[in-house]
């Protein structure tokens, strides 16, 4: 099922070809300026095979993922449309999936989403009408059986490459590969993981994944990213849900003089990237460089991942 092309997605094409895939994500603006989106995408587009339009990650309000997709598809770029279950119910989500595909979106990332309590408006009403697996299954139903959840027909094709998230770095550890199996059964074709800073933990996860044969059914892109400073790492570790950073990495940043911490964070990222690349079953990386998007190019280059055949819409 992994090798059969299900969409017209360029990301899927890269993965099927066996090339090491790179995705990244765009820091969504707090503006109503399309140029902010284009500028941010331009920095990334030359170095990756897909850019995630994130759906208010951390439950902080920014320009919506749907609108970012609208702007990017307008200039001919194929983003990864991220849908979280936090803010919209099943009626809104199914309608948005149709609309996104109509605009030219070919990649969908289905996630549960951080709770509203993690964000800057904790008084908001959390929706969670779907969970991520129900969302995936519904998207697959819409694509493969061409019906809504109600059974009502969809009157056109819906070429979508379906993705999901995975976090191998939080408990219950032994459950995580099994949850991956469920996500694959629900329709996941590619996976982007949470930030990987703990290589031994990730190796153990992949061992179990291979044992179950899951690496042959799904493309796994490992989440990596540069830590900007010791302070930023500490914030991510304590305030952002689901991010685990081992003590050794924290110590390494702490011992580095402040003005060189960003450089050191980038070096750590490149080292991790090169290590996960060697693990059997890893199909690519997802580089998350929040507010330091300009580093993605350097990371890709210094990790020896150039030259690349990237989407060149601009």
């Amino acid at each position: 099922m992994k090798k059969n092309k299900s969409s017209m997605s360029q990301l899927e094409e890269v993965l099927i070809s066996g090339r090491f895939a790179i995705t990244s994500e765009l820091n969504p603006p707090d503006s109503a300026d399309a140029e902010d989106v284009n500028r941010a995408a331009m920095i990334l587009a030359g170095f990756c095979d897909g850019i995630n339009a994130v759906d208010a990650s951390g439950a902080n309000c920014h320009m919506s993922s749907m609108s970012i997709c609208a702007l990017l598809t307008r200039v001919g770029y194929e983003p990864v449309y991220q849908i979280s279950c936090r803010d919209r119910n099943r009626i809104a989500i199914q309608g948005d999936i149709l609309g996104a595909a109509a605009m030219g979106v070919r990649n969908l990332l289905c996630i549960t989403g951080d709770d509203v309590s993690a964000g800057d408006q904790p008084g908001a009403k959390p929706v969670f009408d779907f969970d991520s697996i129900q969302l995936l299954r519904t998207a697959r139903m819409m694509r493969d059986e061409r019906v809504f959840l109600s059974g009502r027909k969809i009157t056109s094709e819906l070429p979508l490459f379906l993705g999901a998230a995975a976090n191998p770095f939080v408990p219950p550890y032994d459950w995580r590969p099994k949850r991956l199996a469920k996500k694959i059964a629900a329709g996941a074709q590619f996976i982007q993981t949470q930030y990987c800073f703990d290589i031994p933990r990730f190796k153990e996860y992949m061992r179990q994944v291979r044992n179950m044969g899951l690496h042959e059914q799904v493309y796994i892109l490992v989440g990596v990213g540069p830590l900007r400073s010791y302070g930023a790492a500490n914030f991510m570790r304590t305030k952002v849900p689901g991010i685990t950073i081992p003590d050794e990495i924290m110590d390494r940043l702490k011992k580095t003089p402040k003005e060189r911490q960003q450089e050191e964070g980038k070096n750590i990222c490149i080292e991790i990237l090169q290590q996960v690349r060697e693990i059997e079953g890893v199909a690519g990386v997802h580089i998350m460089a929040y507010r330091q998007e300009e580093l993605v190019a350097e990371i890709v280059q210094e990790a020896g991942l150039l030259p690349r055949i990237a989407q060149q819409p601009f």
């Binding site: 549960t112 709770d115 969970d131 408990p171 849900p241």
Partner: peptide
């Protein structure tokens, strides 16, 4: 709190 019926989210803390 997220009414999840198919497994835990990715936000579980290290102490479970």
């Amino acid at each position: 709190p997220k009414n999840l019926r198919n497994g835990p989210c990715g936000g579980v803390r290290l102490n479970g």
